[in-house]
């Protein structure tokens, strides 16, 4: 597909949703698992992955999507109730039949960065921050955001992964905290209120917008681009939706079907 016009040199980056996509009968690997992330990059050649980040009890960054552990693992409770070593022990459920033999555990963000930072072609890492998941008996939101942000800044700095890391949150205060701690981070607002988001980004000098494909138009993206703001679209799996998303000329597409999108873009 030709004639893409965006801020990436007219090129759309393909980002795997939680790895190769959320777990289904066909996508049999658990999202945010190391195997799913590795396959997205190594086997399918995605430009990057989008992962969900939570903070453990001992203040390590952990990749996990759901609010509670029991919805997709053999653990029980919240991520913030356990130390990293305990979380490593939790296995993803084997509820999809061909997944019976897959032995995937919860992984840390550091494990992924260790792998990515050694690669010749560095994959992009889109971090979706689960800002509402913290122990309210220990923190108020301000206190938690301060700790959460410092851990994120530390780890990106440790692996010098600034160029390839994109950080998304729907919480303006968390983004402000991150921005305050490190102004060089690429910060993105997750929202459906495009005009408001553009104002916030311009005011704070942030990087872009993350929007659901159903809630953002081609005109919205064109306007964001005219203001120098990047746009990521998500919730895209089927071929018609991928074509619709491509035709809006975003800068990044987060998809559950990497190879199908590659076929649309490159064949």
């Amino acid at each position: 597909m030709n004639d893409i016009h965006n801020l990436n040199g007219d090129f759309i980056y393909i980002i795997g949703d939680g790895g190769i996509g959320f777990q289904t009968l066909n996508t049999q690997l658990p999202e945010n698992s190391m195997l799913s992330i590795t396959k997205a990059i190594d086997v399918y050649g995605a430009d990057g992955v989008e992962v969900d980040v939570q903070l453990s009890k001992d203040l390590n960054l952990v990749l996990f999507h759901d609010d509670r552990l029991e919805t997709s693992t053999d653990g029980y409770g919240y991520v913030y109730e356990y130390d990293l070593a305990e979380l490593h022990e939790f296995k993803y459920n084997r509820d999809i039949h061909a997944n019976l033999f897959i032995d995937e555990h919860i992984v840390s963000l550091e494990a992924v960065l260790q792998k990515f930072s050694k690669q010749k072609i560095k994959p992009q890492l889109h971090l979706d921050l689960r800002s509402w998941l913290y122990d309210s008996s220990l923190y108020n939101s301000t206190g938690f955001f301060s700790v959460y942000a410092s851990k994120i800044v530390d780890i990106i700095n440790k692996y010098q992964y600034y160029e390839y890391t994109y950080i998304t949150s729907g919480d303006i205060n968390l983004l402000k905290e991150l921005s305050q701690q490190d102004a060089s981070l690429k910060l993105m607002i997750e929202t459906n209120q495009i005009s408001w988001a553009i104002e916030q980004i311009q005011e704070n000098g942030w990087y872009g917008i993350l929007a659901n494909n159903y809630n953002i138009s081609k005109q919205d993206i064109k306007y964001a681009h005219s203001q120098g703001i990047r746009v990521v679209v998500f919730d895209i799996k089927t071929q018609p939706n991928q074509v619709k998303a491509v035709n809006k000329h975003p800068d990044f597409i987060i998809t559950d079907n990497i190879s199908q999108l590659q076929q649309i873009l490159y064949n």
């Binding site: 066909n26 079907n257 199908q260």
Partner: peptide, 9 residues
Amino acid sequence: AFQSSYFPY
């Protein structure tokens, strides 16, 4: 293979 996110084509 049916079209899917795992086997795309």
